[in-house]
Design a protein around this nucleic acid. Structure first.
Lengths: 190, 190
DNA sequence: TCAGTGATTGATTAACTGGTCAATCAGGAA
DNA sequence: TTCCTGATTGACCAGTTAATCAATCACTGA
């Protein structure tokens, strides 16, 4: 791993942590750099400006999630199992933790003023949606679109509720909640 | 209406609008005051500091929502109708619009650093939850808690999705989506 | 008339922050 | 050695902003 790659990663992780601790995008480049053990000037050297550092942090979080999804799907056999895997991956500790969710919440705020941030979140939602639809279709037929909309929406909603009250929800209970919703949706169609 | 009450309301509404336009809490008191047609010093005179202005804005938004819910429930007869009214009220134009939702999203961010903001959102969630449970119990029995969790979560999730892409969703489609989820949940139990 | 009270503001300040830049440093190639 | 390139930084600046404050202004009750 080159020095540049390492520094970039360290800064990106520091940014996520700092956003997580502060709970907002109102973090200073200096604080981020200090957390990464370098000077703020180096952050500018590598990322150009603050927003590009934020966007890199976003890509990092979404990539972690995508990796989790891929890993989970690899071991799943059959449509129902794949749906379960998809839901399970959404509440894995690497995503469903304080820092990741605080950052994720703030990325929605960033998306209000950054088209690139909006695009990234959009890609995430579309991918989840099409994954859901793909395995829902054989089980629910024409209702797959609407069901996917509801399951996806519920997942996002639980993220939001976790952001407000991390103690009131954990990965397992959230997974169980969504799995039940899935079963009820499928049951209602058949 | 006293001058003080009028000014406070004007400033609160200006704050919500400004947050809506900027899409973040990174708004200046001066801009808010200018939007309200007064000087920034007056905002400090009435609210003491920026955070207390934000909290007042939050209370305002949540009160608008509560009013909508009360109005909607007043005309509903029977458990199922009350559930429909509850869901319908959540997607009324006065709540489910660009400015309100942008503000609402940022209140979740505010809650990351303000206990009072956290408490206010907590009250909102609890009230929705207990409202749902109250009318769900006769229809779903012991599952009422879990179903309410899912319906409430879905509503929040749709708010979030609207924040990202206001064009992809409107009040009617969102209402229909949640109503279908409700029907499927009830159907699955009976 | 006049004193008192709350509304209102322009001016000011102290602190902070994004971003720049010239200057050093370390290591490899020639 | 000498040169070059990328890593790294401390110092610095220009702009912004929350909060303060002394000073008006408008009105009311005695």
């Amino acid at each position: 791993m080159s020095i540049e790659a390492r520094r970039r990663k360290e800064l990106v992780i520091a940014a996520i942590e700092e956003i997580g601790v502060l709970g907002s995008l109102d973090v200073t480049v200096s604080k981020i750099a200090k957390r990464a053990g370098v000077s703020s000037a180096l952050a500018f050297h590598y990322f150009g400006d603050k927003d590009r550092l934020f966007l890199s942090a976003m890509r990092f979080v979404l990539k972690v999630y995508a990796t989790e999804v891929r890993k989970s799907l690899a071991t799943a056999d059959g449509h129902h199992a794949r749906l379960r895997a998809l839901i399970h991956a959404s509440f894995t500790p690497s995503n469903f933790c304080n820092t990741a969710i605080a950052a994720w919440l703030n990325f929605y705020v960033l998306a209000q003023r950054s088209d690139e941030a909006k695009r990234l979140l959009w890609v995430y939602q579309r991918r989840l949606h099409s994954n859901l639809v793909h395995d829902l279709k054989p089980l629910t037929g024409a209702d797959a679109q609407a069901v996917a909309e509801r399951i996806g929406g519920l997942i996002d909603g639980l993220y939001l509720r976790f952001a407000l009250n991390p103690a009131g929800l954990n990965g397992e209970s959230a997974t169980a909640l969504v799995l039940d919703a899935l079963d009820h949706e499928i049951e209602a169609v058949t």
